[in-house]
Design a protein around this nucleic acid. Structure first.
Lengths: 152, 152
DNA sequence: GTGAGTGCAAACGATTTGCACGGTG
DNA sequence: CACCGTGCAAATCGTTTGCACTCAC
C-alpha cells in the first residue's frame, strides 16, 4: 500500500498521520493476519522501523477506535489486531493455541441481528470457535508448541 | 442447590468434592450470572467462606475443564465464569463495560457449523457482541461507571 | 495412608499511567 | 507554534508457578 493512501486513510479517520501509525497500519494491511502487540513490535523492528511497545499500544488503540483496525480477544491477556478488509471470525486451538481465520457465514458485518427483547445497539459481533486444529487432532503435538499466532 | 447434589456433580465429573469446589460451584449455580475470579473471591468472603484467590483460580480452572463451568472472555484480562444451564452469548457495552447475557439463536450448543473447507473440530463457539447498553445510549453515563459485571 | 487439592509467596506477562520531548498540521 | 502523539520509567492488574501443608477417599 502506498504511503499516501495510508496518510489519507488516517486523516479521513481524524487521526494525525504520523510515521508510527503509518508503519503499524501499513504493516497490518500488507502483511495481513492477526498480530499481538509484541508481535507487531518484533515485526516493526525487523522491518527496520523499531517502535516502542507503548507507542504500539497507543497506535493500535487509536486505530481500533477509529475503525481502521479490528481487535480480537482470543483469550485472557491475548489481544490480536488486524486490518483485514474481509470480516471473519477466529478459531483457537485448545491444544497449541494457534489462531485460524474463519470466514463469516454472513455478509460483511455479521451476526448483527439484535437480540429480541433486549434494547441493545450492537455494532459488532465476534465469534470465537474453540476446538482442535488438524495438527493437534492428529496427535502430532498434544500439548506442545506455543507459536501462538501468525496466520492468514 | 443441595450440598449432596453438588457433591454428586463433582464426583461424576471425576473431581474430588472439596468444600472449596462446592462453594464456588454452588455460588455460581445459585447466584447465577457471570463473575470474574476477583468477583468470586469477594462473594465467597461475604458469604462467610473466604477462599484464597489461587484456590479460586484452581477451582474455576478445574471446573471449566470438567465442563461444569463456562468461561467467557469479554476482553483482554477479563475472564468470566458461569454455571448457567442455558447456553448464551454476551453483550459488552463499549462505554461502561457492563456484560449482558444474550440468548443464542441456535439450540443449546450453538454455531457449531464447522466452517467449510477447514478441517477444524469445533467444540464450542462464543459470540461477543459489542455496542452500547441502553443506559449509555441514553447518555446517562458517557464514560463513567466501571461496575463491570454482575448480571443475569 | 496416599495422593489430590489448597493456598502462601513470589514470579510473570500483558496493559496502563504520568509526564517530558518532538513532530504534525 | 500549538497541540497531538511518542515513548521512557514505573506502577498496575490478572494470572501462573513452585512448593509445603491438609483433607477427601
Amino acid at each position: 500500500m502506498q504511503t499516501d493512501e495510508l496518510h489519507t486513510r488516517l486523516r479521513e479517520s481524524g487521526l494525525r498521520a504520523t510515521r508510527q501509525r503509518s508503519a503499524v497500519f501499513g504493516l497490518l494491511r500488507d502483511a495481513g493476519g492477526h498480530h499481538s502487540v509484541d508481535d507487531l513490535v518484533g515485526l516493526l523492528a525487523e522491518s527496520g522501523d523499531p517502535l516502542s511497545r507503548m507507542t504500539v499500544y497507543n497506535v493500535v488503540s487509536d486505530l481500533t477506535g477509529a475503525g481502521l483496525l479490528m481487535q480480537a480477544d482470543v483469550g485472557p491477556g491475548r489481544a490480536l489486531y488486524e486490518a483485514s478488509e474481509t470480516w471473519h471470525h477466529h478459531f483457537v486451538c485448545r491444544s497449541c493455541g494457534i489462531v485460524i481465520d474463519v470466514p463469516c457465514a454472513r455478509s460483511t458485518k455479521p451476526c448483527l441481528e439484535t437480540p429480541p427483547g433486549l434494547d441493545l445497539s450492537v455494532d459488532e459481533a465476534q465469534v470465537i470457535y474453540r476446538g482442535l486444529c488438524p495438527a493437534c487432532r492428529a496427535g502430532a503435538h498434544p500439548l506442545e508448541e506455543r507459536s501462538s499466532e501468525r496466520h492468514t
